[in-house]
Design a protein around this nucleic acid. Structure first.
Lengths: 123, 123
DNA sequence: TCCATATTTCTACTATTATGGAAATATGGA
DNA sequence: TCCATATTTCCATAATAGTAGAAATATGGA
């Protein structure tokens, strides 16, 4: 990922309405949500929402597909991952013991509830 | 983390010079880097750099400490982690199998080189 | 074809942000 | 105290971004 792409993605997220829409789509998962539903949930007028969604699409963070009369938006998970990797590239020069970020488990709640004793079985 | 804080952090990162400075500090780790060194590395005039560093500090992403004549900046790793968690909260409604993000290993290069056969030793 | 629904484009207005020179401030050493 | 170094504050200018009404476009059904 190039710096310019990352800046575009971050700028897209750096706005209340867009961040809220993004987070809605993070939760929605691959199914995504139609624009109208997003707008209703966030109480944003259609023209404004359309503008913001387009910004997110343009930044490559979400994508749209028409579905009958609605347009359904969903997250581009690969782009999100790339962005995170770009931000944390060479973190602590590869000395994870120095690093408090330890980005494991940022996603999908509490997946491995315990990892103490036995290696946890197939997920 | 509140939405406003996240927007502030993202806005701080959504700028070429600041993003570059941030990434420099990600690599630098807990030691951090003095302002002058950052400015030299990025070829940014002092006044401009000072402005941008202050934005990052204000957003809570980095912190500064005076060290003799220099001011040394370093990453606030906890804030970065919080930001990532906020962005990915309830990702896929807790169904990680749906999610391509799987944010493991965003940090500190390639820590577990292989995880195929034997359970890898204590982290 | 005609209408209702869903979303986007157009447009103008307002507000915020980036830039960098010059001057000011803080530190340490002679 | 005086000077050099390191960084910040002040300021004006230029550029970019957010907002939402009204009109335009696309889809599906009667």
């Amino acid at each position: 990922m190039e710096s310019k792409n990352a800046v575009a993605a971050l700028a897209a997220l750096a706005q209340e309405s867009r961040l809220a829409a993004f987070r809605l789509l993070v939760v929605a998962g691959p199914e995504g949500m139609p624009a109208g539903e997003i707008g209703e949930e966030l109480a944003i007028p259609p023209a404004t929402l359309s503008f913001h969604l387009k910004e997110l699409v343009h930044a490559g963070l979400i994508e749209s597909r028409r579905e009958s009369r609605s347009i359904r938006y969903s997250l581009c998970t690969a782009a999100v991952k790339e962005l995170f990797e770009f931000l944390m590239e060479d973190c602590c020069q590869g000395r994870p013991e120095l690093c408090g970020v330890q980005a494991e488990q940022l996603c999908c709640g509490p997946p491995p509830p315990k990892r103490t004793a036995k290696r946890r079985g197939a997920s």
